[in-house]
Design a protein around this nucleic acid. Structure first.
Lengths: 198, 198, 198, 198
DNA sequence: CATGAATGAGACTTCATTCAT
DNA sequence: TATGAATGAAGTCTCATTCAT
């Protein structure tokens, strides 16, 4: 009994994603993906239009789920510190779930976003920056975050810090995504939060 | 008057480095480099053996200078906190000086290091980890850094935090590398340092 | 109905062999082979790894069959004169069967054998020399061959004499390989001069 | 004191000839010749128009001297057997004197003669065949050569036999060209077998 | 659904050649 | 005379893609 088409597709995308993440999109040949999937290169074209459509589906699928999570957090009406905490936790969960997609995003998003087809990458980036920056700004205004720091720099600091973790994160490690998120938050927050009054 | 050969080589490497950093090594064609250098693709081979030897020279040149700086810091006999500070400052200076080399390193080091020719990347990575980890360990033992954090995680946190900056850092910005280093240190240290007693 | 893969491969090798024999290996472009085979240059790489692997397969295939024939002769326990006769006849049969491979061997073996991949060419050459020289030596000892000749020279004489024939031999001529072999043997063994009367 | 231009030219041609003979014309790069001559590739073009003109000069120079020798022999009015003997001796002398030119001729003449510039190769070949064939024919008619052999085959036999020697002949061997010529003549004329007793 | 064979564009690289110095 | 740098054509090879079976 062969698996339903949608599942087969997802399997193939997962396989492709792993290879892309490991070798880089450009350095990956369609044949390598096919090998990993146990078929011939030409056969992939029954399932996908092109190599590009594979990475497209991988990235857009990831971003879709990411924004589902983020939007839920952002709509929850939390305070700035709690929002940041929730976003970081959510981020590590997504990293855990879409590990290769995140790695691909890190490496390839910049040059892909030059193509119209991948315009949504730029959109997402913009929306992403706004969400984080606004929260940081709210926090600074509310006095829960330090005010002596350049906000943009802070944003980049926290963004990179969190997402680059995808490049080394391995799900079989000792730490669950939530544990890592907690440790990261502890490092990050005790830096950017206003020092405790004496 | 034509420039001395060593200078011409350096110019060409700088050009190649910019294109590599912008587009990725694999996605960059030799012709694009030649275009940027104002010559024909074949002409590059008068100066370099191969596309690979260009990235090789870029990366090894960068690592060479990086280690000159790091070794000076490490040999200075500073305390752990001062060592971390000096390393971070030194890192941002290198990012400033070798911006594209750093960006290339971030993107390509992993898959390049599989080839024997680039074995020095692995060596450098190992040495790098030891230098930072030892310093963090010393600091933890001396009580100047928190002891409730996973050391390896802390190492990755600070490593990524600093070096990913190369991906957005633009030298013509308002901030000098030292200024950015200070802000980063402030964020990082007030997180990993033991909290001030009350 | 397309031919079985093994046959297709053999066809392509035959085509490549003809072009190599006519123009020399280095002077032959992959495109010329592809043209002769009725396909595009790149398509050849579906069947073969490289141009080099083509000449490799041609030469090793030829030597394989040659040695099958030679070994049979050498194992037959014939007298020295009969062995030489049988080797010459066998040689002309191989020339007939592998005309272009022989021509390629003549022209390219020397410089190819410098590469490790073609080490078997040197091995074959050594084995070949031993087989012939031993037979000549046996014949001289037995008194069926002249003893006033330098043996090494005689070996080269007979070797070249036989194998260079591949450069002009055309199978559609009036002479079958066996006929030519007989004439060659007659010249080699008895000379072209009429025997001096006493 | 630099050598006179004509001598320098000859030196360079000798150098080029050695490299051509060793590696084949096509496989030889102008740079290799220049390296062997202790100069840069571009500098050769002060002395020669092109790579092709080098091989041209090498081959035509050799053929010029060869024909000077052959013509003297042919004009001497010798009997057929003596003519053959003199031609063989003369051939080995030329092989000795123009070793690399002969080797180049063997390997490259066929495909070079397709170009108009090298038409003289074909002319020489024709003239060569006529000279030998006529002599053999005269000898057969005069009863000094066997008449039971195909004449064309005999011609090829003797031609190849002599000239292929250039491929292994090394001047520092134990044998002078005349010694080798004598042995070859002995084999060609009388065969390698001991004459059958009557 | 998958295969096997082929396409065609384009990549990296080589190399004979030119030319100002 | 020779050098150093560049040209431009051509060569080998790779690879995403197509398509009849």
């Amino acid at each position: 009994m062969s698996p339903p088409p949608a599942l087969r597709r997802a399997e193939l995308l997962a396989t492709a994603g792993e290879v892309f993440a490991r070798q880089g999109y450009n350095a990956t040949t369609v044949r390598q993906i096919a090998d990993a999937a146990g078929m011939l290169a030409g056969s992939l074209y029954y399932h996908f239009d092109s190599k590009e459509s594979m990475i497209d589906e991988i990235l857009s699928g990831f971003l879709h789920q990411l924004w589902a999570g983020y939007d839920t957090v952002l709509a929850a009406g939390l305070g700035p510190r709690e929002t940041i905490e929730a976003l970081v936790v959510e981020s590590f969960r997504e990293i855990d779930r879409h590990q290769s997609a995140v790695a691909i995003y890190q490496k390839e998003a910049r040059h892909l976003s030059a193509q119209p087809r991948f315009g949504y990458l730029t959109d997402s980036r913009t929306k992403f920056e706004r969400a984080w920056l606004d929260t940081l700004r709210r926090g600074a205004a509310a006095g829960v975050f330090r005010t002596d720091l350049d906000l943009k720099l802070t944003y980049r600091f926290i963004r990179d810090t969190v997402w680059v973790a995808a490049s080394w994160y391995r799900p079989d490690g000792h730490h669950s995504p939530d544990t890592i998120a907690r440790q990261y938050l502890s490092m990050v927050l005790d830096g950017i939060a206003t020092p405790a009054k004496e």
